[in-house]
Design a binder for these strands. Structure first.
Length: 619
RNA sequence: GGCCUCGUAGCUCAGUGGAUAGAGCAGCAGCCUUCUAAGCUGCGGGUCAUAGGUUCGAAUCCUAUCGAGGUCACCA
């Protein structure tokens, strides 16, 4: 179970500057890195490492486009930062055709790139739909597990963060050229589902999703809650009669019956298996609806009922090999004190499996099936210890590939009232939350008078697109590893740094583009004048996209893309506000701005796609 | 108690050893006869938890302290 009761690192890279080629274009950063290497070799006989060549975008308050930090070279140049920067600047200006000029401020070499480079960059890329995306390779895949629900209750806000992170990351990795396999692991067996089954047998009166109109997962969840309530009452009664609370919890009739149900299940009792299949079937129907609404899908779904036995075999294998030890009571353990961890249980004394057991099974199975480059688990940070142990336990079994396991450990979602607790009714249900978002976006659209020309289907689709855009962006813009605050009533907004803001920018651009096409305006980058500051800033922001994608993939962080998308949209809105496009009388300028607009729309759309967010043509 | 995270503006968050720490929200003041105002512009708002250290340079790395959370089950 990846989720326990409530909803719910790495520093893998040091390379400062991300550089890459788009499919059809050599980016200026790559050229400058190569030539800077040459420059310091020629000037100071230094073989510079990539870490020493620090390029960054020039801050807006200074002249220039790209800045080289020259402090790392002052040791070998034995000159002041200013003099060093000037020497390197001279070299670059003489040897790089794209360099227009430079200026030096303290140890910062601010390089201005020629207009021709920028125009050429625009011309070469603005019609390339997949600008910045890498071709997917057929190498070893990356297998990414996310969602991982239990079948005894509906999906909630914690699952939403998990699903959005997993799904977005899989798209980011795919766009970065990786061969990605998305897998789900459903915890369909165990005492939790038996509790729901027992309560349904006792108090269900044959209720089904059809008879009650309740969504399947909600119905099963309802009986889980009923079990818990009745169980607590039994305990209370027993305690009132003088029992010790701990004993009562173990000896209450209901929990005994649930355990018997589990034993029957493990023994393959036909009636129990039949009920189990029926109720899980309801849950899967419910989950499928939620996933569909959320826009999440998987390449493959694993079920713990089919993998836990494999885990048991592996533990036996470990005992045979002598790497795990069986105690007198029959339980199996591994001693990890040499690794600075504790002793860990792998199999109970009664022979039943624990959490770790099935994870050994699923990991090994995936390894055999895919031989992946990396095995990613999107699971909350409360389970960091579990995955740490999992890797070591596998290693003891001789699985060298356990190093390829990567736990994407994300922070908890907190509510203003504190943690979500299902038993206290403070869980934010996934379906309810999405519906609220749809309702809010409808109310907003009506209030703003945005949908007068929309038919019903179009309008409904728009509420869905925007509501989901707001929710997904709100969650994904936060660094995955950090805990985040979710305030349902206030936090999800439609203005400012939000999904709808970015979607709106896209719709705005599309409106301009439609009008330009109707009027048969020419899209052209051939123009004589200089790029205006607004045009250039926008183009430079777009130019950053390929590097941002690589950074996001490297850091396993959709937040990088989210923040980029916001900055790009903001930049476009400024451009849009300060310059006219359709009414521009200078035709080359008009053509250029149309190309810029088209390019921006494409990159916004691709960025949001990486986050699993759709864009509306009108809003 | 051991181990692991986190602490940046009133709130939610960016900031991966580099320049004067940035956004959004909230507050205040402007901008629709003009390509979509779900937009744009301006103002105010900071002991980057605290104290040391490393470095040419620290919100960022190290140490300690304080505060918050997580984890250390024959739970998952």
């Amino acid at each position: 179970m990846r989720f326990v009761c409530r909803a719910q690192q790495h520093k893998g890279f040091t390379l400062k500057t991300y550089f890459c080629t788009s499919n059809f274009y050599l980016m200026i950063e790559q050229i400058l890195i190569g030539k800077t290497k040459e420059a310091v070799k020629s000037l100071y006989q230094l073989d510079a490492s990539l870490a020493q060549i620090q390029l960054q975008n020039t801050r807006k308050e200074f002249a220039g486009d790209i800045t080289l930090v020259v402090f790392p070279f002052t040791k070998v140049s034995r000159k002041s930062p200013e003099a060093t920067a000037a020497e390197i600047g001279d070299y670059l200006q003489a040897n790089v055709a794209e360099v227009e000029s430079y200026n030096v401020i303290k140890g910062f070499l601010n390089i201005s790139i020629k207009k021709e480079y920028w125009i050429n960059f625009l011309t070469e890329n603005y019609t390339i739909d997949q600008f910045g995306f890498q071709q997917t390779n057929d190498n070893q895949p990356i297998v990414i597990e996310f969602s991982s629900p239990n079948t005894n209750k509906p999906l909630h806000l914690g699952h939403i963060r998990n699903n959005l992170l997993g799904f977005s990351l899989s798209r980011i990795l795919q766009a970065a050229g990786k061969n990605v396999v998305k897998v789900n692991l459903v915890n369909d067996r165990g005492i939790h589902i038996c509790k729901s089954m027992l309560a349904w047998q006792k108090w269900g009166n044959g209720e089904t999703p059809e008879s009650s109109g309740l969504k399947g997962d909600k119905l099963v969840g309802k009986y889980y809650v009923i079990f818990d309530k009745q169980y607590k009452e039994q305990i209370a009664t027993m305690v009132a009669d003088g029992a010790i609370p701990e004993d009562a919890a173990k000896k209450a009739q209901l929990i005994i019956e649930a355990q018997q149900l589990l034993q029957k299940w493990e023994a393959g009792d036909e009636e129990v298996i039949g009920l189990w299949k029926k109720m899980n079937g309801w849950v899967y129907e419910g989950f499928a609806k939620t996933y569909k609404t959320l826009g999440i899908e998987f390449d493959k779904t694993y079920y713990e009922s089919q993998t836990y036995l494999h885990g048991k075999e592996l533990v036996e294998e470990g005992v045979q090999k002598g790497v795990y030890t069986r105690r007198a009571d029959g339980s199996v353990w591994i001693d990890l004190s040499a690794e600075g961890l504790d002793e860990k249980l792998l199999l109970r004394s009664d022979g039943t499996s624990v959490y770790m057991t099935q994870d050994l099974g699923t990991a090994t199975q995936r390894q055999k099936e895919y031989n992946p480059e990396q095995l990613i688990y999107v699971v909350g940070n409360e389970q960091e210890y579990h995955f740490q142990v999992l890797k070591v336990v596998l290693k003891h079994l001789g699985c060298a590939w356990s190093d390829s396991i990567y736990h994407l450990s994300y922070g908890m979602v907190e509510l203003p009232a504190g943690k979500m607790k299902s038993r206290e009714g403070t869980v934010v249900d996934a379906d309810d939350l999405m519906q609220e978002m749809f309702d809010t976006s409808e109310a907003m659209a009506r209030e703003l008078g945005k949908i007068e020309s929309f038919d019903d289907d179009e309008a409904k689709n728009l509420y869905r697109t925007i509501g989901l855009g707001a929710l997904k962006y709100f969650i994904l813009k936060v660094d995955p590893k950090k805990n985040m605050m979710f305030n349902p009533s206030e936090s999800v907004d439609f203005n400012g740094n939000t999904g709808p803001f970015i979607q709106y920018t896209y719709a705005r651009i599309k409106s301009v583009l439609r009008k330009a096409e109707e009027a048969n305006f020419e899209f052209t980058t051939l123009q004589s004048g200089d790029l205006l500051p607004q045009e250039k800033e926008l183009l430079k922001k777009i130019h950053d996209f390929p590097a941002m994608l690589i950074q996001a993939a490297d850091m396993h962080s959709p937040a990088v893309i989210a923040n980029f998308a916001f900055e790009l949209a903001s930049e476009y809105n400024r451009f849009y506000h300060e310059l006219t496009i359709l009414k521009e009388e200078n035709l080359p300028s008009r053509g250029l701005r149309l190309c810029l607009s088209q390019f921006t729309a494409m990159v916004i759309s691709n960025s949001l796609w990486l986050l699993g967010i759709e864009v509306p043509e009108r809003m």
